[in-house]
């Protein structure tokens, strides 16, 4: 462990790699760079990195291969996947394979910093945060609130209601990793949400953008009316009163298969 390494950027496209490096250096992070999976593995074997930021499309082995390898050999290293363009498959797959999050290209400074900050904070406080958000379990469902809850990784959740609508929100650990929230951007009623695509943007000081990916597709019925008055509800009760929007799901049966069913970790 000769060098310190905060983030390893694995990207074959020079301009993207350099842009990422520049952004991360501004954050005073130690950045290593790799062109493909082999180079990345060589670096990881020599240095312990807190975060791997990898493109999906690489020459030779893919970013998914590197993701699997990293989770297995260096479990305390978080992985954020850079996707060429966000699709349902990519989004769901990255979470399934154990990525912390993904960031679609093209990203801007605030968007990359948002996800990198969250990932580094998570890796710094891993055991406590993992306890907060248990991994997938099929335990007996404790109460009504935990009934029919589905998760997209440790990122967002959807809860089904008997009337056929669903509420969506951010997972337990999500608010713990944020800077002070300044603003929340939610879709308007009658807009559509899509699984694996943008559900909400949380803006923090310094033009940092935290993006929340939607666990389900549907038509937006309404945003949480209380949340516009008190944004800190997200922080205080992300899985309850801090829900974001209510939707009419579109393709529920198929999409639920792609999510993890578990109970909330909080309270």
């Amino acid at each position: 462990m000769t060098h310190r390494c905060d983030v390893l950027v694995v990207e074959d496209e020079l301009v993207v790699r350099e842009a990422a490096r520049k952004i991360l250096l501004e954050e005073n992070l130690a950045v290593a760079m790799a062109n493909d999976v082999d180079e990345a593995v060589a670096i990881l074997e020599g240095t312990s990195c807190r975060l791997v930021l990898t493109d999906l499309m690489l020459p030779g082995a893919s970013g998914f291969d590197l993701l699997g390898l990293t989770r297995k050999r260096w479990p305390s290293t978080e992985v954020v996947v850079i996707t060429g363009y966000a699709t349902v498959d990519h989004a769901v797959m990255t979470f399934r394979e154990g990525a912390f999050d993904f960031v679609p290209k093209p990203f801007d400074i605030g968007e990359l910093l948002g996800v990198v900050r969250r990932a580094l904070r998570f890796s710094a406080d891993r055991p406590a945060l993992l306890a907060l958000a248990p991994s997938t379990s099929e335990d007996e469902v404790a109460d009504e609130r935990n009934d029919s809850c589905y998760f997209l990784g440790r990122h967002s959740w959807a809860r089904l209601h008997t009337d056929g609508s669903a509420t969506l929100g951010v997972a337990e650990t999500f608010p713990r990793l944020l800077d002070k929230i300044e603003q929340l951007e939610l879709p308007a009623p009658e807009e559509h949400s899509r699984q694996g695509q943008l559900l909400a943007r949380i803006l923090a000081q310094g033009e940092i953008v935290y993006r929340v990916w939607s666990p389900l597709s549907g038509t937006v019925l309404a945003a949480n009316p209380r949340i516009s008055h008190s944004i800190d509800l997200i922080d205080r009760d992300p899985c309850g009163a801090g829900w974001l929007i209510r939707i009419i799901p579109h393709d529920l049966d198929r999409e639920l298969e792609l999510l993890d069913r578990r109970r909330f970790g909080l309270e």
């Binding site: 496209e13 301009v15 993207v16 350099e18 842009a19 990422a20 520049k22 952004i23 060429g84 363009y85 679609p104 290209k105 093209p106 990203f107 801007d108 400074i109």
Partner: peptide
């Protein structure tokens, strides 16, 4: 998307 990332980052 690749060049656009560069444009966005550097111009920012």
């Amino acid at each position: 998307n690749n060049p656009l990332t560069g444009v966005l980052t550097y111009s920012s």
